[in-house]
Design a protein around this nucleic acid. Structure first.
Lengths: 297, 297
DNA sequence: TAAGGTTACGGCGATCGTAACGATC
DNA sequence: GATCGTTACGATCGCCGTAACCTTA
């Protein structure tokens, strides 16, 4: 057994058990990969993969158990490199952030700017995707840190930190009827609604609040992205339910925003990362920066 | 980086950072070990060990952090082999039990006998030592399972199962004054006491019970071993405070045993093993056998 | 016939062993 | 001088790449 065989097993999972593509990823020829897999299975004493003819189609029960240890080894190996990099120069490195549009545009700019000043040598990569995919990014080592509002609580393999809490607001054109008077579930339900796609940015809180009220919202457009929502609000399609902090006083002067904290429960944005993933010092400082910025909300 | 380098780091810790002995343990020459260590440190980019001249004297701070990942890798590697062995033949293998004399002699015989019938191919190694050392045995992979009454609760790296509860008794020659009447703290304290050494078999419970009562016991002999205690009781040195189950009706007919459950709190014997240690199926069955036998108490 | 996998074989490099040397007690 | 570690060098074994072959959609 050796580390490249372990690595191979990990890569095979990523390539849907395709030996050729695994070979490509590892920068060696396919025959070498085939041979190494045979050697490993030989050493283990029974097959790791179910085969259909020659093709690998699934993990055997044994394979599944072994794969658990394999990922542990790969993780530890990455950690060793990360730890070592810390000691060489803690001011150089990369940080991969997976987050949603809302966080990337309205929350992250300040802390990232401050972080950049402290660690000018650290490259920041930001991936935007849906909350579901964010978790996936963590598990496939494509992201170090995820920042989002939904979904991260379910996963036992993650460390989750509460970042900040916020509430939804409604945005509308200045001359809209909702600009005046108290806003109730009933009044809100009279108008076409634009809000986040399912699974995004506190959408689940909107759902549950209105489910309780017994009223049904007329959601005519769902978007992953506050800016898209605002664009259509400007076109008069309806009123937008967005995160309060996504209203920008400078840019959105033509829109009116009204608080909905009495209707929709608080949403909590969290920071998440893999439990066994060693975070370099600068990443830990980045998280501190996030928590600091969170105090403004 | 490769697995033998990782293994080397682990072995180096076991040999107090002695390269020559590490080489011996790994069945290669010392120069090879030296070279591999250099290569690893080179790859990491800074030294793992503090050196005094050429001698390794300690881990650097970096080294300490890396060592944490190293043991994770070694553990995972062992687990892979253990998992594989399970699938090859779950009826063959070895099981290393670390326990104290009392358990080995009075509790384990029945479950081990039953286990042997189910798994005649499994070699059982039993190591006897003090509770403190038992934990050490687990951490150095010299034992798979530890069974004892003391000390195992403190260690976060261990899984601990409650096995059975028991109470202390007093044994004495048949004609002893304590044979008659109620036994109180005060009466017990009148006689010279023989009991377990500190740190063994519920001794801590004896201590705490008498500390509370305000009386001081005259412990004239401490032994790790019930049989030693009984031997000296027979010689008339005093009365023995022993675990109730260590009285054997057949052999100890010349001795009288009286229950002390009203004086000394219950002791709990536990089963412990390393959290990240994969236990083969037969080991899991062995534990079940222990828990089954525990129901008789 | 294209895509995925295996087998055979030659070449190269990593790692080991031998051996001589250096340091420290 | 005994113990411990490093350096140099030749030998060996493991692993990769080339290439031919097998199988299935």
């Amino acid at each position: 057994m050796n580390l490249s065989q372990i690595e191979l097993l990990r890569v095979l999972q990523e390539t849907q058990l395709n030996l050729s593509r695994a070979a490509e990823k590892m920068n060696i020829v396919q025959s070498a990969v085939s041979r190494q897999l045979q050697l490993f299975e030989e050493e283990v004493g029974s097959p790791i993969f179910e085969r259909n003819g020659k093709k690998l189609v699934a993990l055997t029960p044994l394979g599944k158990q072994i794969m658990g240890e394999v990922v542990a080894i790969c993780q530890a190996k990455l950690n060793i490199h990360a730890i070592a990099a810390d000691y060489l120069d803690s001011n150089k490195g990369t940080i991969h952030i997976a987050t949603t549009h809302t966080q990337a545009k309205y929350f992250l700019p300040k802390p990232i700017q401050r972080f950049r000043k402290k660690y000018p040598g650290v490259r920041i990569y930001m991936v935007q995707s849906s909350p579901e995919q964010l978790i996936q990014q963590l598990h496939t080592y494509k992201a170090d840190i995820a920042i989002c509002t939904e979904k991260v609580n379910d996963d036992a393999g993650l460390i989750t930190l509460q970042c900040y809490q916020w509430h939804h607001s409604v945005v509308m054109p200045k001359d809209h009827p909702l600009a005046e008077g108290d806003i109730s579930y009933a009044r809100l339900a009279e108008y076409p609604i634009l809000t986040y796609s399912f699974g995004y940015t506190g959408r689940s809180n909107i759902e549950s609040a209105f489910a309780k009220s017994g009223l049904e919202l007329d959601i005519i457009l769902s978007a992953a992205d506050t800016d898209v929502i605002k664009t259509y609000v400007r076109l008069g399609l309806g009123v937008g339910l967005i995160a309060g902090m996504a209203y920008d006083e400078r840019i959105d002067q033509d829109l009116l925003i009204r608080d909905l904290s009495h209707l929709i429960p608080l949403s909590t944005t969290k920071i998440a990362y893999l439990k066994q993933h060693y975070l370099p010092l600068y990443s830990q400082h980045f998280i501190e920066e996030l928590l600091l910025a969170a105090q403004d909300y």
